[in-house]
Simulated scan of single mutants.
Amino acid sequence: MAQVLIVDDAAFMRMQLKNIFTSLGHEVVGEAENGKQAAEMYKNLQPDLVSMDITMPEMNGVEATKEIKSEDDQATIVMCSAMGQQQMVLDAIKAGAKDFIVKPFTEERVKETLDKLFQ
């Protein structure tokens, strides 16, 4: 079971992800609505996994990934992107994200990604 920090500026997306992670047996330990909040919460919570939206106000997912990885190079971050954000996903992977999930999320796709990360 992983402890997860969910980062997305849309409350309904956080809720959807929370339901998926919970039904897969993981514990959601925090929710952030922008990258700045995510970086601060990461320090306090030290979660096993961060699901990181790419496009957010204040600090986007790529910047937040860089900030978290500079604090903890072992951080496991999965980007959540809409279609057509390939360049930002590539930037995020270069910044240290481990994988990405394309919206709309399915439980199956999230499970596949987690199985890959935590095998």
Rank of each mutant, 00 (worst) to 15 (best):
V102G: 02
G35V: 05
G96L: 01
D53K: 00
Y42C: 05
M56K: 01
F21K: 06
V62W: 02
Q46A: 00
I68K: 02
E31V: 15
E108G: 13
T22N: 03
M15K: 09
G25F: 11
A82T: 11
V4M: 02
E27N: 13
Q85L: 04
G35P: 15
F100R: 10
V102L: 12
A95W: 10
Q85A: 04
M13S: 04
A32M: 03
K36D: 06
R109Q: 10
F105P: 12
V4G: 15
N34T: 02
I68L: 00
M15A: 13
V110T: 13
D8F: 15
A92G: 06
A97W: 13
K111A: 10
F21A: 00
F21W: 07
A95H: 08
E40R: 11
L117R: 09
C80A: 06
G30E: 07
I54L: 02
K103F: 07
M59D: 14
I101V: 05
A2C: 05
V28C: 15
E40S: 12
V50A: 00
I54E: 00
K111M: 06
M59P: 13
G35W: 02
L49M: 03
I54S: 03
P104K: 13
I101C: 06
D115E: 14
K94A: 11
Y42H: 05
L5D: 04
Q85H: 04
I54N: 01
M79K: 01
E31N: 10
I77P: 09
E63H: 12
P104R: 05
A92Q: 09
Q119H: 14
M88S: 12
T55M: 12
I93K: 09
K36E: 11
A2L: 01
D99P: 15
I101H: 04
T106Y: 10
G61C: 03
K66A: 02
G35R: 01
N44P: 07
R109W: 14
Q86A: 09
Q16V: 14
L45C: 10
D91K: 02
L114T: 03
V7N: 13
E40D: 09
V50M: 01
A75K: 13
D8P: 07
K18N: 12
K116Q: 08
Q37G: 14
L45D: 11
M15Y: 11
G84I: 04
N44M: 06
V50N: 01
A10G: 08
K43I: 14
P57H: 14
L49Y: 08
K66D: 14
A11W: 07
L114R: 11
K18G: 09
V102Y: 14
A82L: 09
V89L: 05
K111W: 09
D53S: 04
A32K: 01
I6L: 05
L45R: 09
D115V: 12
N44Q: 10
F21S: 01
E112H: 08
T76I: 06
K98G: 11
T106C: 03
E71Y: 14
V7L: 01
K43Y: 11
N19R: 08
I93W: 10
G30T: 15
I93Q: 07
Q3M: 10
I54H: 02
F100C: 00
G84R: 00
K94Y: 12
Q85T: 10
T113D: 15
R14D: 03
I68S: 06
V78I: 00
V4T: 03
K116W: 07
A11Y: 05
A38K: 04
D72K: 05
F105K: 05
E27K: 06
M59F: 01
V89C: 05
M52P: 14
S23G: 08
M88V: 01
F105E: 09
